[in-house]
Design a protein around this nucleic acid. Structure first.
Lengths: 148, 148
DNA sequence: CTACAACAATTGTATATACAAATGTATATT
DNA sequence: AATATACATTTGTATATACAATTGTTGTAG
């Protein structure tokens, strides 16, 4: 993926701008591929993310605030995001008995099952996205990403 | 920005997943910073992008299809995106006389002026986002991004 | 114990995005 | 010329996201 080709410009783009534009372009291909992998399951990347976080809790419930901390996007979504997962039966939500301001969210058996299937699909997508990168390339990327 | 810290997990994450998660995390910080820089001007990143493309046309009009090709996201937005810019007076749209299916979109004087201001603000944001990266780091990133 | 601040989640509203269907125009086929 | 096909954009609809305001609950100071 060459930036100048895509932007169809002859002018040289300053290194910083070029890097960020390139970043955003790659982001699109990445998120498109990942979303496509989840499409058969009818969940968004964010919803998948929440399911994974809940699985990582190993039965312990998570509050909305906890989810939000671990996720990337904003709070206001989280309520409605969980609503969607609830409708699909992948999570379970109840008021926390010790602090009624909080809610306890858990992944259901059904959620765990479907998540396992999604994992397979996601792994395939990841392999495809990263097929041209060596392990060393990825290590390098991670090192560079740490500088952001 | 360390991935394991953010995800609060003890388990080692496979290299590929780790790389992609890290990528998405960086994407959030990047887009947040860039959007924030544009906020005072009341335009989204996409709108800014369109204005830049139009400036790059040097007076030549662009059709929606052209914009769409140069942009990253999807067509359906583009009509409405241009609507917004039109409302703000930053662009001008008329039916193409030689092919009435097409539209000719141009950036206005006002658009050019405001774009110049935005550029300053964006450059500052870029500097901030990339403050920990050397030129060599960025070159490396660009090389790696070419593999996607 | 009352009033007030802080907390956790939800709701409202506006805007953005994705995908499919529809509109209007041009080109090609017969 | 009439019809079908392809093209370029627009519109409809559902969903996603951002930000502010609101609700209900808990903790605390007087």
């Amino acid at each position: 993926m060459n930036v100048e080709d895509i932007l169809k410009t002859k002018k040289e783009i300053p290194l910083k701008s070029r890097t960020l534009i390139h970043f955003l372009l790659v982001n699109n291909t990445v998120t498109e591929a990942l979303s496509a992998a989840l499409k058969p399951y009818g969940v968004s990347l964010q919803q998948f993310n929440v399911l994974r976080i809940l699985r990582g809790q190993n039965g312990k419930p998570a509050s909305l605030a906890t989810l939000n901390e671990r996720m990337v996007s904003k709070m206001s979504n989280t309520t409605r995001l969980v609503d969607k997962l609830l409708l699909k039966g992948y999570v379970d939500r109840k008021v926390c008995p010790s602090n009624r301001r909080k809610v306890e969210i858990r992944i259901t058996k059904e959620g765990l099952d479907i998540l396992k299937e999604m994992d397979r699909s996601m792994t395939k997508a990841e392999d495809l996205i990263l097929k041209n990168l060596s392990d060393q390339d990825m290590e390098q990327l991670n090192t560079l990403f740490n500088k952001f």
